[in-house]
Simulated scan of single mutants.
Amino acid sequence: MTNRYFIFGAGYSGRAFGRLAAGEAQIDGTSRSEDKFDRLLKAGIEPYAFDGKTVADAVRLALTMTTHLVISAAPTEAGDPVLAVAREALLAETPRLRWVGYLSTVGVYGDHGGAWVDETSECRPVSRRSTLRVAAERDWIGFGHERGVPLAVLRLSGIYGPGRNAFVNLEKGTARRLVKPGQVFNRIHVADIAGALKHLSRSATGGIFNITDDEPAPPQDVIAYAAKRMGIEPPPEIPFETAQISPMARSFYGENKRVSNLAVKAAGYRFAFPNYHAALDAMWAADDWRGEGEADAASPMSA
Results as ranks from 00 to 15, higher is better:
Leu197Phe: 02
Ala166Trp: 00
Asn186Ser: 13
Gln183Lys: 15
Lys198Met: 15
Asn186Leu: 01
His199Ile: 05
Glu171Lys: 10
Ile193Ala: 06
Arg187Ser: 08
Val179Met: 12
Val190Leu: 05
Gln183Val: 06
Gln183Tyr: 14
Gly182Gln: 11
Thr174Ser: 15
Ala194Glu: 03
Val190Asp: 07
Ile188Cys: 00
Val179Glu: 08
Leu170Tyr: 11
Leu197Arg: 07
Gly173Val: 07
Ala166Asp: 03
His189Ala: 00
Gly158His: 08
Val168Glu: 00
Val184Ile: 08
Lys172Asp: 15
Gln183Glu: 12
Asp192Pro: 04
Ala194His: 05
Leu197Ala: 07
Pro162Gln: 05
Ile193Leu: 04
Asn169Glu: 15
Ala175Asp: 09
Leu156Pro: 02
Arg176Pro: 09
Val168Gly: 05
Arg202Ile: 13
Lys198Ala: 15
Arg177Thr: 08
Gly182Pro: 07
Asn165Met: 12
Arg164Pro: 06
Ala191Tyr: 13
Pro181Ile: 01
Ser201His: 07
Leu197Pro: 10
Arg202Thr: 14
Gly163Ile: 07
Val184Asn: 02
Leu200Met: 05
His189Asp: 01
Ile159Cys: 07
Gly195Tyr: 09
Lys172Val: 10
Lys180Gly: 03
Lys172Thr: 14
Ala166Met: 11
Ser201Lys: 11
Gly173Phe: 09
Arg164Ala: 06
Ser203Ala: 15
Glu171Ala: 14
Ser201Arg: 02
Leu156Gln: 03
Gly163Asn: 01
Arg187Asp: 06
Ser203Ile: 12
Arg164Met: 12
Ala196Gly: 11
Lys172Leu: 15
Arg177Ser: 14
Asp192Phe: 07
Val168Met: 08
Ala196Asn: 02
Gly158Asn: 02
Gln183Pro: 00
Pro181His: 03
Leu178Trp: 10
Asn165Lys: 12
Ala166Cys: 08
Asp192Thr: 12
Leu197Asn: 05
Ala196Ile: 08
Pro162Cys: 11
Val184Trp: 07
Ile159Ser: 02
Asn186Pro: 03
Asn169Ile: 06
Gly161Asn: 06
Ile193Pro: 01
Lys180Ser: 14
Ile159Val: 13
Ala166Asn: 01
Leu200Lys: 01
Gln183Arg: 13
Leu156Asn: 04
Lys198Pro: 03
Phe185Ala: 05
Gly161Arg: 09
Asn165Trp: 11
Phe185Lys: 05
Leu170Pro: 01
His189Lys: 14
Ser201Val: 13
Asn165Val: 09
Ile193Thr: 04
Arg176Tyr: 04
Ser157Ala: 15
Leu178Lys: 04
Leu156Ser: 04
Leu178His: 09
Val184Ala: 06
Pro181Asp: 04
Tyr160Val: 02
Gly195Pro: 12
Arg176Thr: 11
Ala191His: 13
Asn165His: 10
Leu178Cys: 10
Ser203Val: 13
Ser203Tyr: 13
Val168Lys: 02
Arg202Glu: 15
Gly163Met: 04
Lys198Arg: 15
Gly161Met: 00
